[in-house]
């Protein structure tokens, strides 16, 4: 695998992708493809649909890299937002799987999955932060983010006023932000080849 760009920042890679540098797109995929696929699979619970969502998102990166503005956020956030949005759009079209119950896919088992060490640490850190939230807030965040439920669907299915759902999401995210601590624990990418 060609990792000649392994030492570049995500943002520099996006700038290169904007100039049609295909190896930059490949490097971004090597960094975030796994997180992207894991996320899409969690939301969609279907490998083919998850692959489509990831492919669409990375092609959107390729097409719109020139419009990416680093001061509005990190490149990794942008990429995973694109993946998440596509996964949620798809899951909402797949009405059948969500027809009756407010059901959240169980956290996939870790056994048998060869997990990247850094991704495992990230996962444990996020799960630990989620555990510190009150149940109602955690439930709202998980059903929305992993389940793809809209705030109106959640209000209806949880039998709560919309305002309650909104404030659970807002307070939940704000607390999660505190729990996760200051951003800036950037990974520095170094060439391993």
């Amino acid at each position: 695998m060609n990792r000649q760009l392994a030492h570049l920042s995500d943002e520099a890679l996006v700038a290169l992708a904007a100039r049609s540098e295909q190896t930059a797109l490949a490097e971004l995929y090597d960094r975030y493809g796994r997180a992207a696929y894991g996320l899409a699979l969690r939301v969609l619970r279907d490998q083919a649909l998850a692959e489509d969502a990831v492919q669409d998102a990375f092609l959107a990166v390729w097409r719109t890299a020139a419009r990416f503005v680093p001061e509005r956020g990190k490149a990794s956030t942008w990429i995973l937002t694109l993946v998440h949005r596509r996964a949620v759009d798809t899951v909402r079209r797949e009405q059948r799987r969500r027809a009756d119950s407010l059901e959240l896919a169980p956290e996939p088992a870790t056994e048998g999955v060869e997990e990247d060490a850094w991704l495992r640490l990230q996962r444990e850190r996020v799960q630990e932060a989620l555990r510190h939230l009150p149940d109602a807030q955690r439930e709202a965040l998980e059903l929305a983010y992993y389940g793809g439920f809209s705030q109106s669907e959640l209000a209806e299915r949880l039998g709560q006023p919309l305002g309650t759902i909104k404030s659970r999401m807002f307070t939940g995210l704000s607390r999660l932000r505190e729990q996760l601590g200051e951003p800036g624990t950037e990974i520095s990418w170094t060439s391993t080849t």
Binding site: Q22, V126, L173
Partner: peptide
Amino acid sequence: LNETATALAFGTVAAAPPERLRASIL
């Protein structure tokens, strides 16, 4: 909030995508 929401992406098991996906995207 978007950055925090995206942290949730890392809160789930990152199963390896099929090999073909990389080539298909490129």
